[in-house]
Structures are given as structure tokens and as C-alpha cells.
């Protein structure tokens, strides 16, 4: 059952991911991204990451996507114009497939069967465990991330300021 659900949601994520890239209208791409994020949330839930699944839905599929769509509408972005395709355009797809093939081969051949994921084995994905890890072992990365966000805000202000006096 779990494996079947995994296959379904993984397929949704991949199809939406491809759709995100091939669509020419930004709104269609953004909506595909919602699909990717929703499917990922379901995958996290299957693996026992309850908190991550909820955060994925609330933060990414909810808040961030709304911002994305607002920006697209504010900019009034229309359908993307496709220019002449360079050789990279054609070489990219086969090379990407080659990379994925190599990775898939590596994982299926080399990974011992005993290391496979067992659904339901991991149980420490709840808010309590996450919170405890976040404020004890991972306290420093958690705090330093606030500086990262501060730098991003500062950068956005520098680049978007009305005029340089």
C-alpha cells in the first residue's frame, strides 16, 4: 500500500516538475509547482516526516506560492517568447537522461537491499522531536539562519531601492 502511494505521488511530482519547465505561461508553471510541492508533502508524510509535510504545505504550497502568483500578476507577465534554439537545447535533454540513468543504475545496483527504506520505520518526524533537535543540537544553524535571512532582506533592499542618492 505504502509503496503504491509512493509511486503515485512520485509520478505526480515528476510529471508536474516536467510540466513546470515546458509550460510557456508563468501562471501555468506556478500552478505546476503547487502540484510538485503537494506531492512532495505527501511523500514526506509517507516517510514519517509529519512536521516537514505540514510545513511544506503551509509555507511553500501556501504562503510562497501566493507570493509567486502575486508577483507574476503584478509584473503582468505574458507568454514566454521562445527564441532560436541553440545546440545546448538539444544536447541538454539526452545528457540529463544520461545523468539520471547513471544515478538510477548506481542506486539500484550498488545500494544493498538491507538499506532500503521501510515505510513507517521512522517515527521522529513530529513537532516535538523536531523542536527538541532544533533548540538543542541544531541551535547554532537555526540562529545563524536568521543572519542569512537578514542578508537576503538587505540585498533585496539594495537592489530594489527607488533611487540612489
Amino acid at each position: 500500500m505504502d509503496a503504491l502511494l509512493f509511486m503515485i505521488f512520485a509520478a505526480i511530482a515528476v510529471v508536474c516538475g516536467i510540466n513546470l519547465v515546458v509550460q510557456t505561461h508563468p501562471i501555468s508553471s506556478a500552478l505546476s509547482l503547487v502540484g510538485v510541492m503537494g506531492a512532495l508533502a505527501a511523500l514526506y508524510l509517507l516517510l514519517g516526516g509529519e512536521f516537514i509535510a505540514a510545513a511544506q504545505l503551509v509555507v511553500y504550497a501556501g504562503a510562497i506560492m501566493v507570493l509567486f502568483i502575486f508577483v507574476i500578476m503584478l509584473l503582468n507577465a505574458g507568454t514566454e517568447a521562445r527564441g532560436r534554439r541553440s545546440w545546448a537545447h538539444y544536447a541538454g535533454v539526452p545528457l540529463l537522461l544520461l545523468l539520471f540513468g547513471l544515478i538510477a543504475c548506481l542506486i539500484t545496483r550498488r545500494m544493498p537491499a538491507s538499506e532500503n527504506v521501510v515505510f513507517g520505520q521512522f517515527t521522529k518526524g513530529g513537532p516535538l522531536d523536531i523542536g527538541r533537535a532544533l533548540f538543542t543540537t541544531y541551535l547554532l544553524p537555526f540562529e545563524v539562519t536568521s543572519v542569512l535571512i537578514l542578508v537576503a532582506i538587505l540585498g533585496a533592499i539594495v537592489l530594489a531601492r527607488k533611487e540612489i542618492d
Binding site: P141, V144, T145, V147, L148, V151, A152, L154, G155, V158, L159
Partner: peptide
């Protein structure tokens, strides 16, 4: 995290 702090500041 350190790499990202350094990089984002560099991009700007």
C-alpha cells in the same frame, strides 16, 4: 548556511 550567507552578500 555559511556558504549561502557569503554568496548572497556577494551576489548583491
Amino acid at each position: 548556511i555559511g556558504l549561502e550567507i557569503s554568496s548572497i552578500a556577494s551576489y548583491v
